[in-house]
Write a protein that binds this DNA or RNA. Structure first.
Length: 419
RNA sequence: CGGGGUGUAGUAUAUCGGUAGUAUCCGUGUUUUGGGAACACGAGGGCCGGGUUCGAUUCCCGGCACCCCGACCA
């Protein structure tokens, strides 16, 4: 894409009404637009990142048998009354509204009921199980206080998968697979090295739930990390008993602030019982379905990446979720420079390498570099009089201080080797 | 929901009870191009409602919005 065609522009000034780093950088670089507290629009660059994250999650969910669907945002009150979660006394952060005919609807704040209710239509026999359904969805929560940019919004984007299994054993097998899939996701998104499987409170049907916590000082959670074992314990379940059951020693734990980027949870029959979600086994007996829930906040994940990977110049996107792989810059209006840049731009496109081409001819070199650092695309390729007289194209990784001059063939070889 | 703070051009800010200033951004022109270029000219502003006052952007009251701390949540 040509930067002259991109309608967003970078801002030099930080927004006055944002303190959090993720919002500051994402707004300055033109990835998101703030609409109101806790509500952000995703602009072309930001949407590209969200879609990259979405693709990674989709691949991992499909790999463990997930089937994608899209559940409605408007939710049927009756279904939620059955599960006991319609009342404001039970859930106080619903966004609810009234229909013209007087009926009430709510906007999705979570998805267990929606999925389980659909499954009532399709799960009748043991032959129908297991089933793993998921969707990507905008979720609405009437938070009393949203904060930290896109880390905690009133409207946010998530993936939720629900597992429907015949029994505990079948459930547990899938649960372990989901755990591995989640590890893959955070690794592929680029924060695997900072993200830890964390034991948290489980509820009625299991001792623990599992959270994926990314270390960052802006996090809202406190965890106790055992670096060697690669696991952590949420403060909410940090007791001697728990430590013993997990075979970790207090002396080896380090307290950290962290943000929950995902969680997986055994639900047992908490929803299948009230919603009457049952199947018949081989003997014709009716059995309640065993459920599990597996969530990731994509918008929060994007914000977390920005929080933990940026530097003083701007964002540093990991290769897998960067809006583009290459940021191509021309310096100067020299005719030969422009011709060579146009040439290599076409070649990037032909080779299927995602490229943002800073083809602006009225912008100084310094400004182009500053913008490029702020936007944070992994590879910067410069075409200028100097680079051409030095023998080709300068390529520099965003995370490295210095670049090098390569011929076109070597440049494409390098990019190919790193894709 | 408790506590604290802030609302001035697109953005970031200054001053002031009496014609609202600067930077950036934007438009025009000339000269520039390897780390946010220079000059000239031009356009653009006081959250909403009420009160005090000859006069309010400024002071007072109410509302709304936004930020931060706490409680609560992916």
């Amino acid at each position: 894409m040509r930067q002259t065609q991109l309608f967003t522009k970078t801002k030099k000034e930080s927004p006055a009404d944002e303190v959090s780093l993720n919002a500051e950088l994402l707004i300055k670089a033109g990835f998101i637009n703030k609409e109101m507290a806790g509500v952000y629009s995703y602009l072309p660059l930001g949407l590209r990142v969200i879609k990259k994250i979405e693709d990674i999650i989709r691949e991992e969910m499909n790999a463990i048998g997930g089937q994608e669907m899209k559940t409605s945002v408007m939710q049927n009150k009756e279904v939620w009354e059955k599960s006991g979660r319609w009342s404001d006394e039970v859930v106080d952060n619903w966004f609810k509204t009234t229909l013209k005919n007087g009926g009430e609807v709510g906007l999705s704040f979570t998805n267990e009921e929606a999925h389980a209710n659909i499954m009532k239509q399709y799960i009748n026999s043991y032959k129908d199980l297991p089933v793993y359904s998921y969707d990507f969805k905008d979720i609405f929560r009437n938070e009393t206080r949203s904060k930290s940019g896109i880390l905690r919004g009133r409207e946010f984007y998530w993936k939720a998968l629900y597992s429907f299994s015949k029994n505990e054993e079948e459930h547990n097998k899938f649960y372990e697979k989901a755990k591995e899939a989640y590890k893959n996701i955070f690794k592929r998104v680029g924060i695997g090295h900072l993200t830890y499987l964390t034991f948290a409170s489980g509820g009625t049907f299991s001792k623990f739930s599992h959270e994926f916590q990314t270390l960052t000082s802006v996090g809202e959670d406190t965890i106790y990390l055992d670096e060697n074992k690669g696991i952590a314990i949420n403060k909410e379940v940090y007791t001697d008993e728990v430590l013993e059951s997990l075979d970790v020693k207090k002396e080896e734990l380090v307290e950290n602030k962290s943000i929950e980027v995902g969680n997986i949870f055994s639900l047992g029959t908490k929803f299948s019982a009230p919603l009457n979600l049952k199947y018949k086994n081989e003997n014709g007996e009716e059995i309640e379905v065993v459920m599990g829930s597996y969530g990731i906040g994509l918008s929060r994940l994007m914000g977390t990446v920005v929080e933990v990977l940026s530097d003083d110049k701007g964002i540093i996107w990991p290769d897998n979720i960067a809006p583009f792989k290459v940021h191509l810059l021309t310096l100067g209006k020299d005719e030969n420079v422009v011709i060579r840049a146009e040439e290599i731009y076409k070649e990037f496109i032909e080779k299927g390498i995602e490229v943002l081409f800073d083809d602006r001819d009225d912008v100084s070199a310094g400004e182009k570099f500053a913008d490029s650092d702020l936007i944070g695309i992994p590879y910067r390729v410069v075409v200028s009089k100097r680079s051409l007289s030095d023998g080709g194209y300068e390529i520099k990784k965003r995370i490295e201080p210095n670049g090098k001059i390569l011929t076109k063939d070597d440049l494409f070889d390098l990019l190919k080797a790193n894709s």
